[in-house]
Design a protein around this nucleic acid. Structure first.
Lengths: 240, 240
DNA sequence: GCCGATAGTTGAACGTGTTCAAATTCAGCT
DNA sequence: AGCTGAATTTGAACACGTTCAACTATCGGC
């Protein structure tokens, strides 16, 4: 009579969760490369092969981590955003909480982007497998804009959430490389870039800027298109 | 009496070159991941350990490839630039020849950026080990600007080579993911972004834009600073 | 209570990048 | 020719991520 009573959650789900928890803990404490699958399996009390039964590869453990990280960010950002009204303040909050959330995983994050930059990796932020997380993140920036007082032309307004998401990825990239104490440099960078973005958005909203803005937005559209057709399109040569 | 007579070049240099040639050939034909160090060693007729005597790791083979690739680009770009006078035309030439040069290595290039995005990799374009190549590339963009007719304010002019280099890295990143026939998408992207950049530079050169420009350039400076102190600065906590 | 199927689990085995102590070659010197 | 120390070369060995055929547990249906 020592069995766990949560029979409903499925034996597998428990094992999977156990492996993930163990892996993330070890990633946090020792880093990614230094954590071997064998060690994870051993610490979790399962066999090596069993870990691979639930996670197709070591990278898929990061994928799970990625999702969890974003959930935490949302949780931290949404309440904080209630206090801010201007676009600048709201953007600042969104970005600062993002870095706050990622902090414990700094040394492990390098690997995250290493594999994320690989087109074939499940972690590629533009790829299909990242679709849910990506959309949630873009949605967050939509909320950042929605609650702000700044008036923005419709065409720009529509693309801005995506553009801000790309911007946030750039900040994260910087943060990964940032070894300054407490990541001060990254926070300073956020301050200055948010200020700059606010100004740029203001400038781009000027009627005079309409032609240039239109051209830039067309470019953005094309980039998004291209980015979204990554896995398919195996260099088609059959013209008809 | 079968010894080679080129005794001056050093036996080691020859072996190193042989290994590199073999490796690059196999990378081109089979891709990076599919090319094992054992296979390279065997095809080059040396032992496995010997390959590691000359190349600290498999990644250092890419490092060497990187340098060679850039040399080819310079070779292709410089003569072509003689024909172009406007900034737009010169920038177009520089970027098109860049992609032309990289073409044969497209499938292999994904790995290049995968490892390049890793802060600890010798391939990191911002890192110390890439310094020579990076500076040469920036210098190329300086020449692109130097020969053009467009008048640009000094502050912007000074940073522009670096900025264009960063831009070129973005294009390369896109190209890596671009599986359209003959990489048409990348060439189209170059066309539209160069056009846009030309306009933006024009706009930024307007006296009205001076404050915003100054702020943006300050940001660029900070980014460069941060990017250049990657390997050092191990989270300094001793304040004095 | 038994059966078959599915889900879960195991650990040996494979191929890889990398390391290392030892073996071999080489150049310069006597 | 013989010696010496450095440069070069070797291949066995290591640790890792990953795969796989086999084994066990679990559960629904008879």
């Amino acid at each position: 009579m020592r069995k766990t009573k949560t029979s409903k959650s499925g034996k597998g789900d428990q094992t999977k969760a156990l492996i993930l928890e163990t892996a993330l803990e070890m990633f946090r404490e020792r880093g990614y490369d230094e954590t071997t699958m064998r060690a994870v399996a051993q610490k979790a009390g399962v066999s090596l092969g069993n870990a691979y039964y639930y996670f197709r590869s070591k990278e898929y453990l990061i994928q799970a981590f990625y999702q969890r990280l974003h959930d935490s960010h949302i949780e931290a950002a949404l309440p904080a955003l209630d206090h801010d009204k201007t676009l600048k303040a709201r953007l600042l909050t969104a970005m600062r909480t993002k870095i706050d959330t990622m902090k414990p995983y700094h040394q492990f994050a390098g690997v995250l982007f290493k594999t994320a930059a690989n087109p074939k990796s499940p972690l590629n932020p533009f790829g299909d497998e990242s679709d849910p997380v990506r959309n949630q993140q873009i949605q967050l920036f939509d909320k950042v804009l929605e609650g702000s007082t700044r008036r923005i032309p419709k065409d720009l307004r529509a693309e801005l959430p995506y553009l801000l998401w790309v911007y946030s990825m750039g900040i994260v990239l910087f943060w990964i490389h940032d070894s300054s104490p407490k990541h001060r440099r990254t926070y300073r960078l956020i301050d200055s870039t948010v200020e700059l973005l606010d100004r740029l958005i203001h400038l781009a909203s000027n009627p005079f800027m309409r032609p240039l803005r239109k051209q830039a937005l067309l470019l953005v559209d094309e980039l998004r298109d291209a980015a979204e057709s990554l896995d398919d399109e195996p260099a088609d040569t059959t013209s008809g």
